[in-house]
Design a protein around this nucleic acid. Sequence first.
DNA 1: CGCCGAACAGGACACTTGTCCTGTTTCTGA
DNA 2: TCAGAAACAGGACAAGTGTCCTGTTCGGCG
Lengths: 211, 211
Amino acid sequence: MAKQPAPARGRTNDPEGLRRRLVDAAYAAFTTQGYHATSMHDLKREAGATGGALSHHFPTKKDLGLAVIRDRVADAVEETWIEPLRSAASASEGIQAAFSAIASELERRGAVSGCPLNNLALELSRHDPDFRAQIEAVFERWREAIAERIRADRAAGLAAGLDPDAFATLVVAAYSGAMAMAKASQDAAPLRICAEQLARAMQEGRGSPAA
Amino acid sequence: MAKQPAPARGRTNDPEGLRRRLVDAAYAAFTTQGYHATSMHDLKREAGATGGALSHHFPTKKDLGLAVIRDRVADAVEETWIEPLRSAASASEGIQAAFSAIASELERRGAVSGCPLNNLALELSRHDPDFRAQIEAVFERWREAIAERIRADRAAGLAAGLDPDAFATLVVAAYSGAMAMAKASQDAAPLRICAEQLARAMQEGRGSPAA
DNA sequence: CGCCGAACAGGACACTTGTCCTGTTTCTGA
DNA sequence: TCAGAAACAGGACAAGTGTCCTGTTCGGCG
């Protein structure tokens, strides 16, 4: 008499795993389609999760969005920018390597979804103060990593004409903007062009210190 | 006996006026909150229009979005970038003027909503091919105007070391990216910093022609 | 073994979304 | 003057939206 709604025999509790699948699905969807353009229903389906599970791990959509920025976007910046900068022979080479790797990756996959951080930044910065704070922190970490690398070069006698903080801001801005142009044209050319222009600026900046 | 639903006595047909109010409201909302975050209901209320009127002028939301890009975003780029470039004494001064005017405007109003073109570009480029084509056209017109101004300078013997097209790409990218950073930090500083770095690059580029 | 909280199932819920439809009013041209 | 089209009113509509709620099951601990 009592309803027995499919015993769900194979279920096994896996909090970390399910949470990871949810954040992965959300990261992919938010950074390609956008935050508002992605529905919770799609995420549930993509991650193979039910409403109850989703609600348990992330009570609101905003919680999921914050987790995406903190756990995925920050790592993406770390992986594509900060690590290459660390392992390169100079700031200039590290910057070129980062640009080049991403441009090649875009050309390989044939579509440009844009910079994950930038995508979420423009959509959510004014939407919610918590989002804004998280995003700003990632931008700042990125910028500071580049500036620090330039300072290291200066200590070694390179790039004496560059203002580390100011030029790092330019690098981040040029990359973000170039990616926006690349997304609009669905072509990696703006990235390659900006990389080359930045290289030229750094090369000329190797002279005497700035005013 | 027959229903007489408020005779609406004061009504006067004003197609152009109502259409303009609708596009104005949509431009303001799309560029500050975003396309998907803005509802048709809000736009109706803001523009003082009814569903019938909105549906008459813009059958779908996409039609309204395309009108915003074509009739407002393109004009905004014209006004804030192309005109200043035309009236300046040199490309460098025009670029500085554009950056400076916008940074001052942001500081005056105390909030950074971001570059209208960039906001819509990141949200809609991958959402719909028609949007992407419109946005790409605006980007290209913007970039080409800068390149053309640099070519004019070269013809006059200035900035001989600059590649007009490549540097114009860098300018557009730096501005777009700086605006994204400004939006995330709610501070115009990235704009001013990038403007100064671009000025330095142009100054150093006044030497011998590039390789 | 018994137990209890965490993990998850599955659907109800109220609300909003964009679009469309039927009328009514205004304007233009013949 | 008088159709007839364009401009607009106002609400209906289905299809979603995000969130919440009541159960059921798993897993560790005494």
